Amino acid sequence: MTDLGDFRAEVRTWCETHVPTDWRANQINASEAEFVAFQKAWFAELHAAGFAVPHWPARWGGGMPVDQQIVLYSELAAHDAPRLVLAFVGIHHAASTLLVAGTEEQRQRHLPAILDGEIWVQGFSEPEAGSDLASLRTTARRLDDTYVVNGQKIWASGGLHADWCLLLARTDPDAPKRRGIAYFLLDMTTPGIEVRPIRNAVGESHFCEIFLDDVVIPAVNLIGAENEGWQVAQATLGAERGMTMLELAERLGNAGFRWLVDACQPIEDALIADRLAQFEIEIAGLRGLCRDLVLRSETGATGAADASVVKLFYSELLQRMTDFGAEIGGLAAHTTLTKPASSGWESGSWMLDFIGSWEWTIPGGASEIQRTIIAERGLGLPREPSAAQ
């Protein structure tokens, strides 16, 4: 077994020679083609080093011990490595779904393809099914050995570039809403699919709408049983926590905090120094929570609300830090309206980062939803009365 100190030195040396030092400058105002090319090249670089999918089983190119994964993400963040924006859904959500509920044929088809650059999008949310995802209305009607799908998806990150989609659709309209849903793998080249970009508040079009008009999906692309897609979806949603949150926490604590300290220089105001000290304490707490969650996940010892605690803490800390950066940065922070395409929510372009931080306090279960989960599942408090009561 490799000593952790030796492994850290190995990763550090690799980062010093492979992380492009000019990527931020080159990714500002990058075209869509330049962004996609850069993302695929960076993923290939990580894959060649064995760093792209360390959380996958060894059979599929992963198998890195959890303590080494923690070191890896810490060093990548410390060296300001670009984020894997386009590959994110594929290496986390699609992979976890295939490994937990996919057939061997489905795994053989898609896991190697993901390593070769296959891009995935998540087709879950709908205009009237966001935090209450089980209210989705997209339908899938069985026809011989196929399903015919009609409906609309929204907030599909990276949909413009996706090759495949993780799709939830209702197969039994008369069943209780969590029991009549099926989970499909959808080829995005299938006739009847229209992808429309949504221009957001910072001028980006990362989010998309997906319209499905009599889209035919082979029955072999069904994941799990026909009406049990909700259970399968929990494996997908679970991939948003754990190691992905650890990576985000490390990035916030490295680049994000460095940019914040730089923005406050020279630190001559005791109130500013106090705010920075408080942020540093909170970052240390977030890192500790994430590492504890990851380590306990390996043994199945996580609580029902642990992931919600981490998501809530990270998203609201991110929002407070970027808000403070925009405040302390003054006019310059409010008029800097560009950021690197392959960065995260801690790029140092404070106003854009602050606006982008709302992506974390709303999607994936808004902060109010997370607090309800923590109260009911974590603390055992009585369920909140419904509007009907």
Score class of each variant (00 low, 15 high):
A77M: 11
F38C: 01
Q370M: 14
A249P: 09
A387H: 12
D145M: 04
I28F: 01
W14D: 07
P127H: 12
G325T: 06
N200I: 07
L286G: 06
W60Q: 04
V53P: 00
S386V: 03
G151R: 01
Q265M: 14
C165Q: 06
A129W: 00
A235C: 12
A307F: 03
A37W: 08
E10W: 07
L167G: 00
R24Y: 01
L115N: 06
L167R: 00
M351L: 15
R142D: 11
E45C: 14
F324W: 10
L86T: 07
L248I: 11
E250H: 12
S308Y: 04
V215D: 02
M351Q: 08
Q265R: 10
T97S: 12
A175L: 09
L168R: 00
G365C: 03
H206I: 10
R59V: 09
R170L: 04
A277H: 10
D132C: 10
L237S: 11
Q122K: 08
L168C: 01
T322Y: 03
I374P: 00
L252N: 07
G151C: 12
W56E: 04
P54M: 08
S131L: 07
A58K: 13
W164V: 11
P65D: 10
E16I: 07
P266M: 09
L76V: 03
T21G: 15
Q69N: 05
G253T: 02
G238P: 05
Q231E: 15
H334T: 13
Q69C: 06
G380A: 08
D172S: 12
A304H: 05
E105L: 04
Q69F: 02
C165V: 11
D67P: 00
R109P: 01
R107I: 05
D163C: 10
W42E: 03
F88H: 13
I181Y: 03
A249M: 12
A33F: 05
I267N: 07
A219K: 08
V71L: 03
Q108Y: 05
E376S: 04
R59F: 08
V202I: 15
L286P: 02
L352F: 09
E327T: 15
E280G: 14
A169Y: 02
I114F: 00
E209H: 13
T21F: 04
P363V: 04
E128F: 12
C165P: 00
A249L: 05
D116R: 14
A78I: 10
A326N: 07
Q278Y: 06
A304N: 10
S315A: 15
A95V: 06
F211G: 04
F211E: 07
Q68P: 00
Q319P: 02
V19H: 02
P191S: 11
D323N: 05
R275M: 13
H92P: 03
G62N: 08
I181N: 01
L222G: 09
G356S: 11
S31T: 15
R12M: 06
E118H: 08
Y314N: 09
E128V: 14
S386N: 04
